[in-house]
Design a protein around this nucleic acid. Structure first.
Lengths: 210, 210
DNA sequence: CCTATTCTGTACCGAGCGGTATGCATCTGA
DNA sequence: TCAGATGCATACCGCTCGGTACAGAATAGG
């Protein structure tokens, strides 16, 4: 029995999208309910009926962000070798944090790294999500060791931590207004450094060595 | 004519130190005046008389932080070669963001990367300070090129951006609770990567090549 | 001792916070 | 056509925010 009573007068997906951008630009605590409802084009009771509370709205925004703005991470993990995984991750990250049609930086950092004690859960939630991504990258590197495109003595967790540290630093830079082209240079340095330290070889190097 | 009227009943330096830690742990917007006065052990009128406003208090806290908690950066810049500059910077940064007697992470990030539009100046101020540090590092690398311990074709600005991105990522990790030992591994990877990409040589390499 | 000066504690300010009660509008199903 | 259900808009809730007025307390200089 779907659709009883008066139908809602707004698109919940579009409203969530607007909320996502407000959180991204102003952080969880910096985004007031007035800011949110104004951007979403709805009133507070509609927001609460549709999304539950400010914190639930935020978590849904983060989920949406992970799905659509971090899609490149899944694409990166699907690359055939560790080198290409990292290359894709670093290069796509640069694009993602400097999209002209989106706020600068990355929601999972801009959302809030430090919060009032009342909202400590929010900062913790974001930190946990980021570390989950890092764990997934470490797992991918473990597979790369098994498949031989990383040396047997490579440390997957440490390498993943290095790569994620760089992407986080890049996100901070982007939020500070650093240009895409500048971040691209940094990504190439990090990628070359990763290859040199880990022993991962680029497709070109592999081709040449055959 | 010093000391007219009733003398103040608290140590302004100690009070600023307490405020610094609150801002560090909770961020600018997450730190309420009540949180601050409670930690500082004074009442609001005393705070306003001594520090002006919440924002001025924050800026003074950041200045104090730069002076005492970022002292290692000046020590790093004074190292004789680019390699040692970076080695000191990365290793000391790991210690600084994981001091057991201090909040985790780095005030210039925890203070706030995103703010409500009212407080946009605060996030901008922090971003500017961080980029100023990066510029100083780039200058140090330029000197290193002139002195020959970086190759002539090295890009000082890009290398500085890479190093700062890593330290910022490490600070984010530390704030998320990642252990000092784990960050130390990351720093060594970044250092080795920096050396490999930039052509900077460690003192040991230099000694061996003579 | 008195006055001028400065600091301290209390009590308060208007504004905005996150969240909600209520009454009306709009839909479906019978 | 009307009952039940749902969404919408307004107006409001208690609370906390950053900031301050004011009166009393403590000092120095005279």
């Amino acid at each position: 029995m779907p659709q009883r009573g008066r139908p809602r007068g707004f698109d919940a997906d579009e409203a969530l999208e607007r909320a996502l951008e407000v959180f991204w630009r102003q952080g969880y605590e910096g985004a007031s309910m007035s800011d949110l409802t104004a951007a979403m084009g709805i009133n507070k009771p509609s927001l609460y009926a549709a999304f539950g509370s400010k914190e639930e709205l935020f978590r849904k925004a983060v989920a949406r962000y992970a799905e659509q703005d971090m899609e490149y991470a899944r694409r990166a993990f699907a690359q055939p070798t560790a080198y290409e995984v990292v290359a894709t991750l670093l290069r796509e990250n640069v694009l993602a944090v400097t999209r002209p049609d989106r706020p600068a930086g990355c929601l999972s950092i801009q959302g809030g790294t430090a919060c009032s004690s009342d909202n400590a859960a929010v900062a913790g939630f974001l930190a946990t999500s980021r570390l989950a991504g890092e764990l997934a990258l470490a797992d991918r590197f473990t597979r790369a060791v098994a498949e031989g495109d990383l040396p047997a003595d490579a440390d997957p967790a440490a390498l993943a931590r290095f790569v994620m540290s760089v992407t986080e630093g890049q996100a901070i830079h982007a939020a500070a207004g650093v240009a895409r082209e500048a971040l691209r240079q940094t990504a190439e340095i990090a990628l070359a450094g990763f290859a040199a330290v880990s022993g991962a070889r680029s497709p070109e190097q592999v081709a040449r060595s055959v």
